[in-house]
């Protein structure tokens, strides 16, 4: 695995994420979100899991930003007012504290890794996690029904 490739991907992911959280234009943020997720899909490929990469690409890098842009268009809210300096400060401190905490959790360096074939992942998905798999399908159905119920206009 190339360190250069990882560095480039990581840099792109972080840059995209920063645009998402800093841009004053929400449309820009949504596009940046698509790119960020796209590069994370690249990271999954590097981890030897093409299946996960494809799903990441299809769902997170494509469907979700498109949905987001639809909502932005529906609500006509393109601009975000920037937060106050004090809030930025608090957020930076908290995020830093989190980073510090997570950093402490990093374990010993681990180098060997094992790629995962889509067949292997699928077989385990439908055996080890069969019940969560079914529950997840019910969850998606519920979300769909719930979204329709919540968002429809009440006729008067």
């Amino acid at each position: 695995m190339s360190a250069v490739g990882f560095a480039i991907l990581a840099g792109l992911v972080l840059a995209g994420a920063l645009v998402v959280v800093l841009s004053e234009n929400v449309v820009h943020a949504a596009v940046a979100l698509a790119f960020t997720f796209f590069f994370i899909a690249g990271l999954y490929l590097m981890l030897g899991s093409p299946m996960l990469a494809v799903i990441q690409f299809a769902v997170n890098a494509a469907a979700i930003p498109i949905l987001t842009i639809f909502i932005i268009m529906t609500t006509q809210s393109r601009r975000v007012r920037p937060a106050s300096g004090a809030l930025y400060l608090i957020a930076v401190v908290l995020a830093g504290a989190f980073l510090y905490g997570l950093w402490g959790l990093l374990g010993a360096p681990q180098t060997a890794f094992r790629p995962v074939s889509p067949e292997g992942l699928g077989a385990r998905l439908l055996s080890v996690t069969l019940l969560p798999f079914e529950v997840a399908s019910v969850l998606l159905l519920l979300a769909m029904v719930g979204a329709i119920v919540l968002a429809r206009r009440l006729e008067k």
Partner: peptide, 20 residues
């Protein structure tokens, strides 16, 4: 992943638009 998480957290706390 930790840095990405911190960035997301920063966004949750500072953004003033629910979509963001």
């Amino acid at each position: 992943s930790a840095v990405l998480f911190a960035i997301g957290l920063f966004g949750v706390l500072t953004r003033r638009n629910l979509i963001a």
